[in-house]
């Protein structure tokens, strides 16, 4: 049931991407609004699937350990948030991309930028549904913590911010390379949106790293162990800190910032995928 809904959401995102493309080709405001509307509808269905999986995961767990008392129920609900394996994290990543795209770009989400955002969300979700094991597994003891919810939530919203900045950066580089007089999106606007997405992503990644440290402190007895995942999230964080200083203090703009945003996103991808598949460590479950 949930996987069907997710399949449908993938198609809705694809439709939104198509509408944005059409809007760009015919410069139609109507189609732009439709694109945003369809993206919003996809997001709503996506949220539904997310909560559906949460409920299912809760049911699954309460078979093993029927919780007693309201406190235990609440604890189990929090622990069973569907963010505990690779599939669930991808689903949430896609959700964050469309959500953050709508929230942080708002009326600037149109034309080519809208196309990029909707396609990103669509591709991530399609990858999750087609290539990743989606079964619900019981949680290992270290994951049973109230910090799981806030830690993974903030990390992935952060990643989504960086993904949006990456999309805007690609678009920026692509269209400032061509010497055409008629850009698909005004470059200053893209530059500003890029910064906005990076700032949001940085804020959330910082909170994600902090909550991760607090959690590690209570679970492993060290707030920082230089585990590869931690280390790479720190590298990512350094790169974006560099970007923010370059822009806010040194006044860099445009292409140089766009390249930094791409470098940063490469680090995000390595933190997310590369570390899990290439480097052994404590974070092997995500």
């Amino acid at each position: 049931m949930i996987s069907q809904v997710l399949g449908l959401v993938t198609l809705i995102y694809l439709a939104a991407a198509g509408l944005f493309l059409a809007a760009a080709l015919w410069s139609s405001r109507r189609l732009e609004a439709w694109g945003r509307g369809v993206l919003l509808a996809g997001l709503a269905a996506h949220l539904g699937a997310f909560f559906g999986r949460w409920v299912e995961s809760y049911r699954h767990a309460s078979q093993y350990t029927p919780p007693e008392g309201a406190g235990a129920v609440l604890n189990l609900v929090i622990h069973q948030v569907p963010l505990s394996n690779f599939f669930e994290s991808l689903v949430f990543f896609s959700l964050s991309v469309s959500f953050l795209g709508l929230v942080s770009f708002r009326r600037h989400l149109k034309g080519a930028l809208g196309l990029v955002v909707a396609l990103l969300a669509c591709l991530i979700l399609a990858y999750a549904s087609l290539a990743v094991d989606s079964s619900i597994r019981p949680l290992m003891p270290a994951l049973k913590s109230n910090w799981l919810l806030i830690h993974v939530l903030t990390c992935f919203i952060g990643y989504a911010g960086f993904a949006l900045a990456f999309g805007a950066a690609l678009l920026y580089l692509w269209q400032t390379r061509r010497s055409k007089a008629n850009p698909v999106a005004p470059p200053q606007e893209l530059d500003r949106l890029m910064y906005r997405a990076v700032a949001l992503g940085f804020l959330f990644l910082s909170v994600g790293i902090l909550t991760g440290a607090v959690w590690a402190d209570s679970a492993w007895g060290r707030y920082w162990s230089w585990d590869p995942k931690e280390t790479w999230s720190l590298i990512t964080w350094f790169i974006y800190a560099g970007l923010l200083h370059a822009r806010l203090v040194k006044g860099w703009q445009g292409r140089r910032i766009a390249w930094l945003a791409i470098l940063g996103f490469a680090a995000v991808l390595f933190t997310y995928f590369g570390v899990s598949f290439l480097l052994p460590g404590l974070h092997s479950y995500l």
Binding site: W226, P228, T231, W232, L234, I235, F238, I239, A241, G242, V275, L279
Partner: peptide, 13 residues
Amino acid sequence: LLLVLAVVATVGT
């Protein structure tokens, strides 16, 4: 320094 730290951390992983 941020860059140096990024490189050191990369070597460490």
